[in-house]
Design a protein around this nucleic acid. Sequence first.
RNA 1: UCCAGAGUAGCUCAAUGGUAGAGCAGCCGGCUGUUAACCGGCGGGUUACAGGUUCGAGCCCUGUCUCUGGAGCCA
Length: 453
Amino acid sequence: MRTLIKHLLASTEPREAVTAKGWVRTRRDSKGFSFLEINDGSCLANLQVVVDAGTPGADQLAHLNTGASVAVEGPLVASPAAGQKWELRARRVELVGATDSSYPLQKKGHTAEFLRTIAHLRPRSNLYGAVFRVRSRLAYAVHQFFQERDFVYVHTPIITASDCEGAGEMFRVTTLKGNIDEKPEADFFGKRTYLTVSGQLEGETFACALSNIYTFGPTFRAENSNTARHAAEFWMIEPEMAFCDLQGDMDLGEEFIKAMARHALEHCAEDLALFGKFVDKALHERLRFVVERPFVRVPYTEAIEILRQSGRKFEYPVDYGLNLQSEHERFLTEEHFKAPVTVYNYPREIKPFYMRLNDDGKTVTAMDVLVPGIGEVIGGAQREERLEQLLDNMKFHKLAPEDYWWYVDLRRYGTVPHAGFGLGFERLLMFLTGVSNIRDVIPFARTPGNAEF
RNA sequence: UCCAGAGUAGCUCAAUGGUAGAGCAGCCGGCUGUUAACCGGCGGGUUACAGGUUCGAGCCCUGUCUCUGGAGCCA
């Protein structure tokens, strides 16, 4: 019966006979015996195995190179040397699967660029093993957060005919051959369909029935974006709350990010320590800061004033009615406030039709949460719940109401104030791990020109 | 897509326009407790690709491809 290495290393007393299985990280030979470092991915640390010459299976030692898979059994004993608490004294060793000299992973450091070219092997490295354990744990934490607050998990469609008002370029889904725009009504679904860029509109329909809902699933953007923060396929979390306004929306977003940071600190300590040491020395300080301090909230108009009076030369102009550029967002969160910042009440012109128009007639109830190092991590809004105003917004943004008939219906039948936001799971992971490239927090990154694995 | 930089051994990197090298990895050997073990030895190259300049190009020029950083779009 195999025991995971994380459980072996957490032992409180020696054990008479255990079996460990995993992959060899390194082997150190001495005359008469060898040390094997074995990792099975259950935790960051390796299990040290001592194999004496003459141990059954020790004749295979020469093949137990870095990368080989192995099964060992024997007693778990306190290690007499510094460096590890426990070690396994092998009574039997079995080479499960050998490697050869072409195995690309070494025990020395590799660059992230090289490891991306071997995405099928990189989870066997310390850093990527840690990243993907944290990813799994945080996915669990996302569900826990919402389920504990009585949010209902809704599976919004992956294939969709609505485009969520230009949230981005879309991937076409079709079974047609040749010119796919010639007769879209002959296509599989009888109309043009795409991979979803957001589940928000569908999510709103469920919030207007089940009160508080969230989605958590893959979304797709066909943008030709070549940055460390964009992927063509990424996972998005989109809560939506009925009978909720912008204040409640900002409260939830802030609470959510704090909860994720707290969860990572409490449940991923060993992996976070690795990130703190090799990836981002300021990680722990930043996470504790996020957990302990309230976020700064500032209206868009005020943010513009702060930027104007900063005396800072920006590459892009700062003016009311213009979008905040990356450099502006970074200044606000990293330099001016030195804290996560929620900017709200943006000009109507630069935000989508579904956001609620404020009484000033000029701004809408949008909010963006900006965090140091990443920039925008949350984008949300209170939605326009008034039928006439929604139709007016659509006219303002030159959209046809009949294309959104089911969305408009929500305002026709028992409309309620409601609000929600979207949060990119990978960007959250970047923030929580300090890893600076989105390609390194998703198992197999989809970026322009890259779908090898 | 735009701007900048970079492509040399499996990996990380050297090499004034003049015989392509080191460390690590691999293989062989040594070492009685190692910790990215250590010590000795061996093999390993179409210098991203295609042209051009030159007596001579890894190095200079042109084009292409890929990657990285930044920007735009956004999450």
